[in-house]
């Protein structure tokens, strides 16, 4: 029997006093991949930011238990150190900060948190080289500044690459497919699939079914107006593709 990794109960959250999430219930066990789908403005990205603890996203009610901890009480960096990883929809540029240097700093924060010794630059390069192959990253990318001057596709690949190096327990992928051409999409999906393990889990946020051809989810949830209004297996995604979101948001479906 698999262990619960995250349990979201009746979670509501607002930005600037405007309620966006209106009672989310979701449990993700180790080894599972959950897809969150939904129309624009349904609260998908907000869910990602609330789980990762972004400033300005206020939790108004409900609870989130993550690996036995109360997630809401934790600072964003503590969540990260506890293995929660958000692959950003729009990764930011940090000019002048070397990609490898940045990633090693992050990597060592996680190690310190686990009571392990920090890894030196030489050993870390070994880790990096191995993971780079997985994402088919060009060598030069690690010598550049974090996301600076990267194309949209490179930024997304860099996110998954960071995920590969940091080896999180729970990954939240926020529209990682947006802006990717089909080749880049395959590379990213292959990377995510290769990182799947029995003791980790992913929440894949996407607007389109396309990504789910490559990252096959165990469960699909439909988010609309801040609530999960329907849950099902991977076939639900196909059904959505065919019939559009109107099919459910018009009130036919009932939350699972």
């Amino acid at each position: 029997m698999s262990n619960k990794l995250i349990e979201i109960k009746d979670l509501s959250a607002s930005i600037d006093g405007k309620q966006i999430l209106k009672g989310i219930n979701l449990t993700v066990n180790e080894g599972e991949v959950h897809a969150i789908m939904g129309p624009n403005g349904s609260g998908k990205s907000t869910l990602g930011y609330v789980l990762s603890g972004r400033d300005g996203y206020d939790v108004d009610g409900g609870s989130v238990s993550y690996a036995g901890n109360d997630l809401i009480d934790m600072a964003p960096e503590e969540r990260a150190r506890e293995g929660l990883f958000l692959a950003f929809q729009y990764p930011v540029e940090i000019p002048g900060v070397n990609n490898t240097y940045f990633l090693r700093a992050a990597f060592n924060e996680l190690r310190k948190h686990r009571g392990e010794e920090e890894m030196d630059a030489v050993d870390f390069l070994g880790v990096v080289k191995e993971k780079m192959k997985l994402l088919e990253l060009p060598d030069g990318m690690m010598k550049r500044s974090v996301n600076e001057g990267f194309s949209g596709g490179e930024k997304k690949r860099n996110e998954i690459f960071q995920m590969a190096v940091l080896d999180p327990k729970l990954s939240v992928l926020d529209e990682t497919d947006s802006g990717l051409d089909i080749d880049a999409l395959k590379i990213v999906a292959n990377g995510v699939n290769a990182l799947r393990k029995p003791d980790n889990a992913s929440i894949v946020i996407t607007h389109y079914q396309r990504l789910l051809d490559y990252i096959v989810p165990d469960f699909v949830h439909v988010l609309s107006d801040g609530r999960i209004i329907k849950s099902g297996g991977k076939e639900l995604a196909l059904e959505l593709e065919e019939k559009g979101y109107d099919w459910i948001t018009n009130g036919e479906a009932v939350a699972a």
């Binding site: 990762s52 603890g53 972004r54 400033d55 600072a75 964003p76 960096e77 969540r79 990260a80 150190r81 990883f85 958000l86 950003f88 990764p91 930011v92 940090i94 000019p95 002048g96 900060v97 940045f102 990633l103 700093a105 992050a106 924060e109 996680l110 948190h113 500044s145 974090v146 960071q162 940091l166």
Partner: peptide, 22 residues
């Protein structure tokens, strides 16, 4: 926030950004 989300404290994050700038 991006750096926080990768496990860095805010102070370290600001330092890293400023040092990158310089």
């Amino acid at each position: 926030f991006y750096l926080n989300q990768r496990g860095l404290e805010t102070q370290d994050a600001v330092n890293m950004i400023v040092n990158g700038f310089c």
